[in-house]
């Protein structure tokens, strides 16, 4: 489908980008770099291409599309948004300053006529086991709203254009409602939204309250940095590796014995727990 093709091209964009950054920052991405993702939240704007410092990072992104995080060195970057395929005149251009180790969501907001870039700073870690939630009001014509979870007000009085701070909640499956502020009139409902532990959720309300495309949400669900592994899995034990000398075979036997011992040592308690 359309969306899929779009995601593929975004992926291509990310890949191109990573090639550059990987060579430049082979061992230190986390500390020296910033992470930036771009969200198309302008309901009546066409599909767009996005460039960073002149390099195309996103192609043909339509309304409600969000890129994955792009890795950028800390410092200033020129971000420009063009109608898809037409790079003569940007629709909007901005200088984005990003700090090392920080993550940002940059949303193209408001109507095409009043297009603006809204920069939101993202947290990357939750308290252990908790879910962090925040909501963004990015619907240009919707009134001030409250957001409730299971009937209780979680966020009050969010106005366009704004994104609330994070609220910490226990992991749960929640019926989230967006209401006209101070009333019980539900404008948008998200029943059965799973809020998991060690996850950060950014729920962006986008679209027109009165008009097409209508109200919808973009939900960005980021695993807490601490929930991501620091190392890749050790998915091999060496049984098919070349064994071209006795020395190697001996080495392997030692490895085998050592791993076996470790295995026993570490695994036994786990078994008892089960």
């Amino acid at each position: 489908m359309k969306l899929k093709r779009l995601m593929m091209s975004m992926l291509a964009g990310v890949m191109v980008f990573s090639v550059f950054s990987v060579t430049a920052f082979a061992h230190d991405h986390e500390s020296d770099d910033a992470w930036v993702r771009i969200v198309h939240a302008s309901p009546d704007a066409p599909a767009v291409d996005v460039t960073v410092n002149g390099d195309v990072v996103v192609e043909g992104a339509e309304f409600k599309a969000a890129t994955d995080y792009l890795e950028l060195p800390a410092g200033e970057h020129d971000v420009a948004i063009f109608p898809a395929g037409e790079h003569d005149e940007p629709v909007i251009e901005a200088t984005l300053e990003v700090g090392a180790g920080n993550a940002y969501t940059v949303a193209a907001i408001n109507t095409l006529e009043n297009l603006d870039l809204h920069v939101i700073e993202d947290e990357t870690s939750t308290t252990d086991g908790m879910a962090w939630v925040r909501v963004g009001h990015l619907s240009p014509d919707a009134p001030e709203v409250d957001v409730t979870a299971g009937g209780d007000v979680l966020f009050a009085g969010a106005e366009f254009p704004s994104v609330t701070g994070y609220e910490e909640v226990e992991p749960m499956t929640a019926d989230l409602d967006v209401r006209v502020a101070g009333t019980e009139d539900v404008v948008l409902e998200l029943p059965g939204t799973e809020l998991e532990g060690d996850m950060l959720y950014t729920v962006l309300a986008v679209g027109f309250a009165d008009g097409e495309p209508g109200l919808d949400t973009i939900i960005l669900a980021d695993p807490s940095h601490d929930a991501m592994p620091s190392e890749m899995p050790a998915t091999g034990m060496g049984g098919t590796a070349d064994q071209n000398s006795n020395y190697m075979a001996a080495g392997m036997l030692i490895v085998l014995l050592a791993s076996g011992a470790l295995f026993f040592f570490f695994r036994r308690p786990a078994f008892e727990n089960q």
């Binding site: 969000a66 995080y69 960005l220 991501m228 899995p233 998915t235 091999g236 490895v255």
Partner: peptide, 29 residues
């Protein structure tokens, strides 16, 4: 790690295994 385990707007499934030489000092491929 972040590209493999972090958030993406796509519905992705990534398969990981080892490849390359087995390093007997580090005891991993």
């Amino acid at each position: 790690i972040r590209d493999i385990f972090g958030y993406t707007n796509s519905q992705r499934l990534n398969l990981i295994t080892c490849t390359g030489e087995f390093d007997r000092v580090e005891r991993t491929h």
